[in-house]
Design a protein around this nucleic acid. Structure first.
Length: 669
DNA sequence: ACTGCCGACATTTTT
DNA sequence: TGTCGGCAGT
């Protein structure tokens, strides 16, 4: 195809005319990336080399050169990252930066799908399924399927979902995924494939989409509808993709289509920080970018501005252990700094006490809590320390782990909202009916199929139902009828739904007071939206971390400490970082020890964790752990156990000798 | 048909 | 640790 370039008067604006002093604010390579004009470019940015800064200034620079903000697409890994960058860009230049198209792949695809729903064969009010919803749906299909066929040892819903998901995201046939990931289930290949088809058909029939569908349907839309593709690609004059090392095949295909008109694609990332292979990310995307986009300009950011040299020395040493080597050596001009500490605690509780006491000690030296983070591999690795922090009155915020919207009681309330937005949402109907007394799978199923058959969206005149349920169903119907009138008032709608659900909640859960507090928080949260439809979409695409609510509502005056999974800490930095539970079996996870590829990913994870630290880094582990069987000894992570003391300095914890009168010496169990 | 209880089990990380 | 499926009782 031939292309004709339309000139823009101001494209050639000279440096002197720009108001932002890019040359002074950036180093040579950052400047090169910011000033880069047209064509594909790959920016390799090691940890802490000013990647965010570079993207931020590039957005500002483009806009200052009169590129309309709406024609810039900035794809990031989380919504938070996009906001942060655009906010910063706005403070460098002006508010126009906020109008840049931005967010995650899923967000942008969701936006496109709503815009072009007509071309899609989906109604614009389709319901988004988060992972738990998707599993519920699969479970629904699975149980009837297993009953019919009498299959034994058939994969669980979670396994099924991850198989389907891997096949979509990596764009490889289901059979290959199965052979590679779950060879034990190969004998069930045909059954699994049937189930996959049924799942897809079910979603289509009921206007449902899961996360993978957002990407997949967008891909199909752009591939099959020339007009849509041309229009979308023409809109995106400049496309930038952050964290490119964590894109999967499907996302790489999408990026290509998004930028297919102007070819102004800038991919930014670091192959040493690829930590999402488990969800289909393929570091070949970044490694083979130059071949994929011939004529691509390669820009490498190497100087680290974040960490002191001893932290980088440790990071470099870690990477040396990779089976597949990285040609990477971070350096900095910040030569001074303490050696990272390796803290051996006798128990998990002592580990927590050390962290809490060290945090208090640092706070006394005027290091604010908000400059400190505690990082860990799994969401639950922080339970012990959360308890200790609460006891020491240290306010914290936790990222990663269980999300607010994943809790059963929140999902119950959401189900009521979902049937208002999409009356075809059978999963939600099923869920809310099962909450009623005396209604089990059978009756719920009958009611749901009655609704479907009669194309009804309410249960008012069901003759199927015996008097036993009548009263409850009337109460439900009345509430739903009320909700329908409140479609544009989420605050009131959620309030009504919670009022209705409250007695059910008290009946169902032992810990209902805590859950009811959550529900009250939900009501307040809902006030931030102006329609139920929007609220549902936003809450699934951008789930709120479950502990975020508590800290916000308690309005602590001091900016809180951060607790985070390593995955959720990506791209962030703190003055002091604690990496806790650094045990073999946790980092690396026990599931990854059989394969060098998986092991490398765990190593990169630890690398990411360590490179978050600017000044101080502590790696901690307990030598004994408790389990249901009793205590047992645990070993430090294999990644750190052989490092020399000149890189990672061992620390020992010693109990203070206490006076007999000191009652605190008796610690609670 | 539904509910509750018991034992088995898998068990990460996120959009 | 909590979730899932099977079983017995109502």
């Amino acid at each position: 195809m031939k292309k004709f370039i339309l000139h823009n008067r101001n494209d050639e604006k000279r440096t002197a005319e720009r108001t932002v002093a890019y040359r002074e604010l950036l180093n040579d390579t950052q400047y090169e990336a910011v000033m880069f004009q047209n064509g594909p470019a790959l920016v390799i940015a090691g940890a802490g080399t000013g990647k965010t800064r570079t993207l931020t200034y590039r957005v500002a620079r483009l806009i200052e050169d009169d590129v309309p903000p709406e024609s810039i697409l900035l794809l990031t890994f989380t919504r938070r990252a996009a906001h942060e960058m655009l906010d910063r860009a706005a403070s460098v230049l002006d508010g126009r930066c906020q109008r840049v198209q931005g967010g995650t792949f899923h967000h942008y695809c969701n936006h496109l799908l709503h815009r072009f729903a007509g071309k899609l064969g989906f109604p614009a009010n389709f319901t988004l399924l988060d992972q738990a919803d998707a599993m519920d749906t699969i479970q629904h299909m699975r149980s009837s399927f297993v009953r019919q066929t009498g299959l034994r040892r058939f994969p669980q819903k979670q396994t099924l979902l991850s198989l389907f998901s891997a096949s979509v995201n990596r764009q490889i046939p289901l059979y290959d995924v199965l052979a590679k990931d779950q060879p034990a289930f190969l004998e069930h290949y045909e059954a699994i494939e049937t189930l996959q088809k049924r799942y897809a058909a079910y979603k289509k029939d009921n206007a449902l989409m899961d996360f993978d569908d957002l990407l997949l349907h967008t891909l199909h839309l752009l591939q099959n509808e020339d007009q849509v593709r041309t229009r979308v690609a023409a809109e995106n004059r400049f496309v930038m993709v952050d964290e490119y090392q964590d894109t999967n095949r499907l996302q790489a295909d999408l990026v290509k289509l998004f930028s297919s008109c102007h070819d102004n694609l800038m991919a930014v990332g670091d192959d040493a920080q690829s930590i999402y292979a488990f969800r289909g990310a393929d570091s070949r995307n970044i490694l083979q970018f130059p071949e994929e986009f011939p004529g691509c300009t390669l820009i490498t950011l190497e100087e680290n501005y974040r960490s002191v040299q001893p932290v980088l020395d440790l990071a470099n040493k870690l990477l040396e252990q990779a089976h597949q080597k990285f040609e990477k050596k971070l350096f900095t001009r910040k030569k001074e700094g303490d050696l990272p500490g390796l803290v051996k605690a006798s128990t998990e509780r002592d580990q927590s006490r050390f962290v809490a006491q060290m945090i208090l000690h640092l706070r006394e030296q005027d290091i604010p809590l908000s400059d400190i983070a505690v990082l860990f591999r799994n969401g639950r690795d922080s339970y012990n320390i959360e308890w200790e922090l609460n006891k020491s009155n240290i306010p914290f915020r936790k990222f990663g782990g269980q999300k607010f919207a994943e809790a059963a009681h929140i999902r119950d309330v959401m189900a009521h909202i979902r049937v208002i937005v999409n009356p075809d949402d059978q999963v939600a109907w099923n869920r809310l009916l099962l909450l009623l007394d005396g209604i089990g799978p059978k009756t719920a199923g009958e009611l749901v199929s009655w609704l479907k058959r009669n194309r009804k969206s309410e249960l008012g005149d069901t003759h199927l139902v015996s008097k036993k349920y009548k009263k409850q169903l009337d109460r439900l119907s009345m509430m739903l009828a009320e909700l329908k009138t409140l479609r544009n008032n989420p605050h009131k709608a959620v309030e009504k739904a919670v009022l209705y659900y409250r007695p059910i909640c008290e009946n169902r859960f032992d810990d209902s007071p805590k859950r009811i507090r959550d529900l009250e928080a939900f009501v307040i949260l809902a006030a931030a939206f102006n329609s139920l439809d929007k609220m549902l979409n936003e809450m699934t695409l951008d789930p709120i971390d479950s502990s975020a609510m508590e800290t916000e509502s308690s309005m602590k005056e001091e900016a809180p400490l951060t607790l985070s999974t390593i995955h959720s800490a990506k791209g962030l930095e703190w003055d002091t970082v604690f990496v806790i539970q650094c045990l073999d079996g946790i980092i690396p996870s026990g599931f990854s020890v059989d394969s060098n590829r998986d092991l490398d990913e765990e190593l990169r994870l630890l690398y990411v964790a360590c490179t978050r630290a600017k000044e101080r880094l502590f790696i901690t582990y307990p030598i004994s752990r408790q389990s249901s069987f009793g205590d047992y000894f645990s070993n430090p992570s294999r990644f750190i156990s052989s490092l020399p003391e000149t890189i990672l300095e061992p620390w020992m914890l010693i109990e203070e000798k206490r006076l007999l009168s000191d009652t605190r010496s008796i610690s609670p169990a």
